[in-house]
Simulated scan of single mutants.
Amino acid sequence: MAIDQDTVLKVAHLARLHVSAEQSQALAGRLSDILNMVDELQQAEVDNITPLAHPLDVSQPLREDLVQPADLRDRVLPLAPASEGNCFLVPRVIE
Rank of each mutant, 00 (worst) to 15 (best):
F88P: 03
L72Y: 13
R73N: 09
A28H: 01
V38C: 02
V90D: 07
S83V: 10
V19F: 00
V11D: 08
T7I: 09
L52A: 15
V76I: 14
P61L: 01
P61I: 01
T7A: 14
S24Q: 00
E22S: 14
L77D: 06
V93N: 14
L14V: 11
A15D: 13
A53L: 12
A44L: 14
V11N: 04
L89P: 00
H18A: 12
M1K: 03
D65Q: 08
Q60A: 13
H13E: 06
E64P: 03
L27I: 00
D65S: 15
Q43I: 04
Q25G: 13
Q23L: 02
A21G: 09
T7C: 06
A21T: 09
S32Q: 01
S20V: 04
E95Y: 04
V46D: 05
Q43P: 02
R16S: 12
M37E: 14
A53R: 06
I34E: 11
D65W: 06
L62P: 02
Q5I: 12
L14E: 12
V38N: 00
M37C: 12
N36S: 13
F88H: 05
D74E: 14
V90C: 11
D33C: 05
Q23I: 03
L62D: 07
A82E: 13
E64H: 11
V8P: 00
Q68S: 15
A21C: 08
A82I: 08
Q25W: 07
V76H: 07
N86Q: 11
E84F: 12
L77K: 04
V19W: 00
S83Q: 09
M37I: 13
V46E: 11
V76A: 15
S20E: 08
A70L: 15
E22A: 15
P91R: 10
A53W: 07
S32P: 02
Q23V: 03
L17S: 08
A2I: 06
D71S: 09
A44W: 08
K10W: 03
P78N: 04
Q68I: 12
S20Q: 04
R75A: 15
V19N: 02
R73T: 09
I3G: 02
P51D: 14
T7W: 04
E64K: 11
E95R: 09
V11I: 15
